[in-house]
């Protein structure tokens, strides 16, 4: 007993080390080690406040760029309006292909605009913090887009802030569609460059047009169909594999991203209920 106590006394640093590492491990696992820390709620609000202050400066520096982005986006919107106006007289099915802009279609999507107040781009798990939270109707698992293209998915929400898991995040996985061949694949990120992501699961018999645009498939309830994601830049296939890995140049520049839109899908519950009841029906 005496020797045991002596042993414990002598090697307490080791036990303390193991204990503290276990505490860290618990902390990591509790936050899935890639999820945004909501930590103590107060701490998050405090961090959010500081982030917003810092971002005030960044905002100023990026004004010119974000102005240009907004102008470009306005142009596309105007042309969209013009197009739909022109086509309303013609009773044609192709008149409006974009469900988002079709007033008659009663599109089930609501867009909330928000500003990016903090971001990381050089980690393996990259997040944005935006200045809208549950008070503004933001919930977890909502899609986030920018003027340029897809950004990511809302992960954690506090009262006034939310964190967004971006495309450049090791756990990010988005169902995407090649716009010319209409083939589906799964978009993930290999952790190398903040400008490129990878599209998997495109069968090798599909002819891949370079510089083709990659858009969202609309299969998940998170994003509507047809939101641009990136441009196909390179294809590769490992020996013996029957699926391509495509390098996709992302349209969203996560370094300068400033204005984002959060997509709320109002029919989400209805859709999920229907799908759940169908699956349940099959089970019986």
């Amino acid at each position: 007993m005496h020797t045991l106590l002596q042993f414990l006394g002598r090697s307490y640093p080791l036990f303390l080390f193991i204990f503290l590492e276990l505490v860290c491990l618990v902390l990591m696992i509790n936050h899935h080690h890639y999820q945004r820390v909501s930590y103590l709620h107060g701490a998050n609000a405090f961090n959010g406040y500081i982030d917003e202050k810092i971002s005030g400066w960044g905002e100023f520096l990026l004004l010119r760029e974000s102005n240009e982005q907004l102008l470009a986006y306005n142009e596309t919107l105007l042309s969209e309006v013009y197009r739909t106006d022109n086509f309303t007289d013609i009773n044609s099915k192709e008149a409006v292909t974009d469900t988002l802009c079709d007033p008659k279609n009663n599109a089930p999507y609501i867009f909330h605009s928000a500003k990016v107040i903090n971001r990381t781009v050089n980690r393996q798990h990259n997040y944005l913090t935006i200045n809208k939270g549950s008070n503004d109707g933001i919930k977890a698992e909502m899609g986030v887009i920018s003027n340029e293209g897809l950004v990511g998915i809302v992960k954690n929400v506090s009262a006034n802030y939310a964190t967004v898991m971006t495309l450049i995040h090791k756990e990010s996985k988005i169902s995407a569609l090649l716009s010319t061949t209409k083939n589906f694949g799964s978009l993930r990120w290999n952790g190398k460059s903040a400008l490129m992501a990878q599209l998997y699961d495109i069968p090798s018999y599909v002819p891949i047009p370079m510089n083709d645009t990659l858009v969202t498939s609309g299969f998940s309830a998170i994003f509507p169909e047809g939101i641009p994601i990136g441009i196909v830049k390179e294809k590769s296939i490992s020996k013996g594999d029957s699926f391509y890995v495509l390098d996709i140049k992302l349209l969203t520049d996560f370094h300068t991203l400033y204005n984002v839109y959060i997509i709320e899908y109002t029919d989400l519950e209805e859709r999920l209920q229907l799908e759940a009841s169908t699956i349940k029906g099959l089970g019986e």
């Binding site: 503290l20 590492e21 505490v23 860290c24 491990l25 618990v26 902390l27 990591m28 509790n30 936050h31 080690h33 945004r36 820390v37 930590y39 990381t120 980690r123 997040y127």
Partner: peptide, 9 residues
């Protein structure tokens, strides 16, 4: 820096 537990460990 949003990495709860990693730097600490």
């Amino acid at each position: 820096s949003n990495t709860l537990g990693i730097h600490a460990s």
